[in-house]
């Protein structure tokens, strides 16, 4: 799980163009939206695309996103349970 979390942080930094950031700068349990990383709705779409592209996960239910994208840890847990690649 820890390896997946580190990999996911690096992918988030690349996908969202956080050029000044390293994986160590992202708190695994901090909120991704609002406070914490302060992501917006376009970033949410990028994360959905990232999960599809890198892990073969298609999010069909928008309501599920709130729980999945709560933090990097919740994203990683969902990926580990549902990945197809």
């Amino acid at each position: 799980m820890e390896q997946l979390i580190e990999q996911l942080k690096a992918q988030i930094i690349e996908a969202l163009n956080f050029e000044d950031m390293t994986p160590a700068d992202i708190n695994t349990d901090a909120p991704l939206f609002g406070e914490g990383l302060g992501l917006d709705s376009i970033d949410a779409l990028e994360l959905i695309m990232l999960m599809d592209r890198e892990y073969g996960i298609k999010l069909a239910d928008p309501k599920a996103g709130k729980a999945i994208f709560q933090s990097v840890r919740t994203m990683a847990e969902y990926i580990q349970a549902n990945r197809t690649k």
């Binding site: 996908a15 969202l16 163009n17 376009i42 970033d43 779409l45 990028e46 695309m49 599809d52 592209r53």
Partner: peptide, 9 residues
């Protein structure tokens, strides 16, 4: 086919 929302805007 992975359309980028960040580029689209």
């Amino acid at each position: 086919y992975y359309p980028s929302p960040a580029l689209f805007v």
